[in-house]
């Protein structure tokens, strides 16, 4: 039996990324990044525009091939596994920009996600309980929903696959603060089910509030790793923009 943390979840990481390097052509978007996600924790990856956050998540999901490094899941190297097989193993991504199926209804979108689902607590019914507005609008095309509602559908579509690790890329993008808050209320509920969450966020305050650990990227490289309560705003700012940015520069991280 593996060791237990807090007496609840195994200490060995579900997802382990080692020395991962990813190129887009000549451009090195992710540079020797190592991180791990355990069951029941939230790892927040923060960083400025173009820091390589989406590339990191998409590579873990199997949409980009790494140049070097490895991705392991439950101890197996999955670096060469096709995207749809990773989903069946237990890795789901809520992609940047939601990427819903526009000609499908709300319910159909979620059903596509459920079609290759593993065993677990999340199914269509559970989603309708999680998002009470959904049942009565389930036959609407997703184009008729607001941005926040579309984001909820995107999350539900990924959750019904019953992932062991859920990757979330900028849920807050383009949403009003009140809507962002409501979306973030769901993260603890997901984590309570033992799911490990790897969250990418530009809104640092939001990320710090929900994260167990924080991982900051700067131009593809790891610039800071730590526990939110132990990090000073100055340290985060330096890691976010690079240490050569003077304090009191025109803008700080979104807060």
């Amino acid at each position: 039996m593996s060791e237990q943390v807090g007496g609840e979840y195994p200490r060995t990481p579900l997802l382990e990324v080692a020395e991962l390097t990813v190129h887009h052509g000549q451009l090195c978007a992710v540079d020797q990044v190592s991180l791990s996600v355990r069951a029941g924790e939230v790892l927040a990856v923060i960083g400025a525009n173009g820091a390589g956050k989406s590339t990191l998540l998409r590579t873990i999901a199997g949409l980009h091939r790494p140049t070097a490094g490895s991705i392991s899941f439950e101890g197996d190297n999955i670096s060469k596994l096709a995207t749809h097989r990773r989903v069946r193993r237990g890795i789901s991504l809520v992609p940047e920009g939601r990427r819903l199926f526009v000609s499908l209804t709300v319910e159909e979108n979620i059903k596509v996600g459920a079609q290759s689902a593993g065993p677990g607590p999340f199914n269509l019914k559970a989603m309708y309980e999680l998002f009470p507005w959904m049942p009565e609008r389930r036959h609407q095309k997703v184009g008729q929903l607001s941005g926040g509602e579309q984001q909820a559908v995107a999350i539900a579509r990924a959750l019904v696959a019953n992932p062991k690790v859920l990757l979330i890329d900028e849920v807050s993008l383009g949403l009003a603060p009140i809507v962002i808050e409501r979306i973030y209320e769901f993260i603890p509920r997901i984590v309570d089910q033992g799911v490990g969450v790897l969250l990418v966020e530009q809104d640092v305050t939001q990320a710090l509030a929900v994260a167990t650990r924080v991982h900051c990227l700067l131009e593809g490289k790891t610039s800071l790793v730590g526990v939110p309560t132990e990090l000073t705003p100055a340290a985060i700012e330096a890691a976010y923009f690079g240490s050569d940015v003077a304090h009191g520069a025109a803008e700080g991280p979104t807060s």
Partner: peptide
């Protein structure tokens, strides 16, 4: 449904576990 999903967004369909 999967055929329609793939024709809407091939990548998103893969992310839903569709080959």
């Amino acid at each position: 449904r999967q055929i329609r999903a793939v024709s809407d967004d091939r990548e998103a369909a893969q992310l839903c576990g569709t080959n």
